[in-house]
Design a protein around this nucleic acid. Sequence first.
DNA 1: ATCGTCATTTGT
DNA 2: CAAATGACGATC
Length: 672
Amino acid sequence: MVPQVVPARRRPPRQPPARTQAAELPVARVAVEVSLAHLDRPFDYLVPAKFAEAAVPGCRVRVRFAGKLTDGYLLERSPGSDHPGKLAFLERVVSAEPVLTAELAGLARAVADHYAGTLADVLRLAIPPRHAATESQPSGPAAAPPTTPDPGPWARYPMGAGFIAAIAGGRSPRAAWSALPGQSWPHAIAVAVAAAASAGRGAVVVLPDAADLARVDAALTSVLGPDGHVALSADLGPAQRYERWLAAARGSVRVVAGTRSAMFAPVRDLGLVVLWDDGDDLHAERRAPYPHAREVLALRAHRSGAAALIGGFSRTAEMTQLAQAGWARTLRADRAEVRSRVPEIRAAGDDSELARDEGARAARLPSVALRAARDALTRGPVLVQVPRRGYLAAIGCARCREQARCGSCGGPLALESAGAQAQCRWCGRLASGWRCPRCQATEIRALVTGVRRTAEELGRAFPSAAVRVSGGQGRIGRVQAAPALVVATPGAEPAADGGYAAALLLDAQALLGRADLRAGEEALRRWMNAAALVRPRSQGGIVVVLADAALPAVQALIRWDPVTHAERELAERAELGFPPAVRMASVTGSASAVRSLLASAALPDGAEVLGPVPTAVGDDRQAEGEVYRALVRVPRTVGTRLARALAEAQAGRSARKDPERLRVRVDPLELI
DNA sequence: ATCGTCATTTGT
DNA sequence: CAAATGACGATC
């Protein structure tokens, strides 16, 4: 018997399953989840007849793209396609839930364009991962709109009642808000939100961190009732996160408050966006294309015709720019009202007399600060703001003060507790047997004192006071009215029942000395946020800032005038050609890649390229090899063209399959 | 990964 | 000069 020769047949050629296309609108325009710049456009697919109903605009689909199964979103159904080749079928409709609403699709495209990024990258930030079990649960009916609220805290602002009335009337005023201290800003936000809700419109509120979100969450509950809103934060599990997000997308909840990523919350009929403390760098997204909540919410308000309330106790140059451009109106209380609300503020510079008390000397307290704290401790809690976390954030040679650095990576050495061994803040290596490279001494001394060491020193200076620490991992949300020393890092200050009797702002001068464009504005923001927690002067509230009274930021604090300070700041930046007076973008990568990208980009006329120069690696140094950065500067009027030119140049690179990924940032936060 | 296009090679 | 092969690029 001749063995049958079976040719080693490879798998039979794929039988295209005999699929028929939907009768109506058979073409689906799909945004594929691919973040390559040259593929950042819709692709057309045929809708199989069996998905004719499920394939609704905004739903998640799976398609074969370049051979691979890929996720995507159905943007629209269309009767035909411009694609000259033949179309593939949708592989399947993941679910008929329209998660990419028309508003969100338009917003995401605009955000991608502004930041020279891709739609896929923005959608990854904007839409949470699907949770099927949650999706099959129905969302409840929307709460009934509240009645038009009383302007309440807004009556203290000359334009406040009008602002609230305009929102309640369905109009869209936009405010650059300088909040009045000494009253509840979360409550003020809740009232503005209630005004939008009373007009049958939705609202999005974005806060810098979970503590602020909790405060606004509570205020919204008290103003709107328990079912009037949802809170979205990073610490939610996937199911809860998706459930609340869906409730907004389905229209069963009209108000969303949350941290950064809530800026994309799919609230329907958007009537108001709110951003609290827009200078906080937590509002800048860390993932590509690095959108900032202020920019996204402003864009959103603009596109949706919503009102906007953006600000904090302080004022950023960016909001000043928007106010001067006429996009927003300044919303603040008049001088008399401000004066009646703020604490007394005193500056103690380097020349001020140090306290005689030994404990206070150790804590580097001038006598004016010591007296203020001692006196205040008889009346209530005292806040001490320390701009560095940890124990000793930097150490150096006891003899020559040379900073102690890691032997293997050059990072700064720090101490985590009193008896601990010195450790590198960058690579974590323990440094044993440190010897000063300059003078060979082996003794170390403190260069920068962190919160925990400061708390220890203050405990000795005030032996009878309870000392509490808030910062880093261990945060306190609120303290009682009883006397106590509360030592906190900026942003981690707990509120005090009835307000603090005093606040000491330590190492304030050091904040101003940082080589950062925003040093002055940022210092003022941190100080005002702390000072706003202190009782007004009429109730004995006092703030002592350890910095030279002649400095503009210190003057602005003493006068409680962030607007004038920001106006001067903006004018200076215009003079120097810095944002937001101009538009900038940064390009980061190898020197050759940065150069070739900029050479191939059709930059607008008047574009100025600075660099590339090697970047300060900082403590974010996972990349091996030299990292270079160039800055491109253009007039604001051609900012859009700059972004387009950079996006097109990136598309050229990805089409050429250049393996090196370059990082392009529009409006980069770090400039120096 | 897969498919189509276009240039190049190979067989007449 | 036509058919077969392969490189390349787009990716529906």
